[in-house]
Design a protein around this nucleic acid. Structure first.
Lengths: 144, 144
DNA sequence: CTGATTGCAAATCATTTGCATTTGG
DNA sequence: CCAAATGCAAATGATTTGCAATCAG
């Protein structure tokens, strides 16, 4: 079973558990985020869906409402770049981001060294870490 | 000579060097950011200035234009929280943040190990780093 | 003088909200 | 059934832009 199917199953469980109602739209929106390797803005998602599901006619507000719900239930997460939220799946392991300030390209990475050091710093300051965000900004190979 | 005075001197140099014109407004806006220990939104700055310099009558657009200029010239920097940019001086040495999710206490720290590793990661990905932001979220000693 | 900067108002962009209509359980 | 979700349009909030008036060099 693909990861996407699993996450959609998880969505259905959450909806059932909360006593809400499942809809095709919300599943399409989630699937669109899950299946894209890039970070997508609400508008990106709206455009992709409008093209792929011409018949459906999904409104922008629905996209925003669904994204908000999906982020709250931690099925997806977002980062803000250039005054715009970009969404991605929350099921591909923790990673941090390199962001090109010119072309906005995003590269994901993960460094055990940094993760270990973060834990050490937290411990030194008597903090119990829950999560963190790290963005490195600069010029990518093409833009520098 | 205070740090603030030094930075304002720097602003004047930049303006002269670029052949632009110095204004009281821009200096007031810069000074407001420099002298505040917190991160301020454009509106925060506008409000502080409106109160402190009742006679001046500085417009919101002027605040935004000045902040943009000051960030471009790297006299200040910003982070985006909750769809709103918050500005702070760029002259108190680089640091990252530990944030308590319960009491909102913020501890600033700096780790050479992490900085070095970040440079290494950037290099591996052919990035030229300009800056970065790192926030570690968790419970502080008092709240956990 | 003259081009840069200001300050107002109007415009824009991303996102949210109100509400009548539709739909899932 | 009926509360939840949709989809449109209008509202919002942060930021930008156009432009006439002002001001610094």
């Amino acid at each position: 079973m693909s990861n996407t199917k699993q996450v959609i199953k998880k969505l259905r469980e959450i909806i059932k558990q909360k006593g809400l109602k499942n809809t095709k739209q919300r599943e399409i929106i989630l699937e669109t985020v899950l299946d894209d390797k890039n970070h997508l803005s609400a508008e990106d998602i709206y455009n992709k869906i409008s093209k792929k599901y011409k018949d459906e006619n999904i409104g922008m507000a629905t996209v925003y409402k669904a994204l908000k719900f999906l982020e709250e239930t931690e099925l997806i997460n977002s980062i803000t770049i250039d005054n715009t939220k970009k969404f991605e799946t929350n099921f591909k392991g923790h990673h941090d981001h390199l962001v090109c300030v010119k072309c906005n390209k995003i590269i994901e990475f993960m460094s055990e060294t940094i993760e270990d050091e973060q834990e050490k710093i937290a411990k030194d300051n008597k903090f119990v870490l829950l999560k963190h965000t790290m963005y490195l900004y600069g010029y990518c190979g093409n833009c520098s």
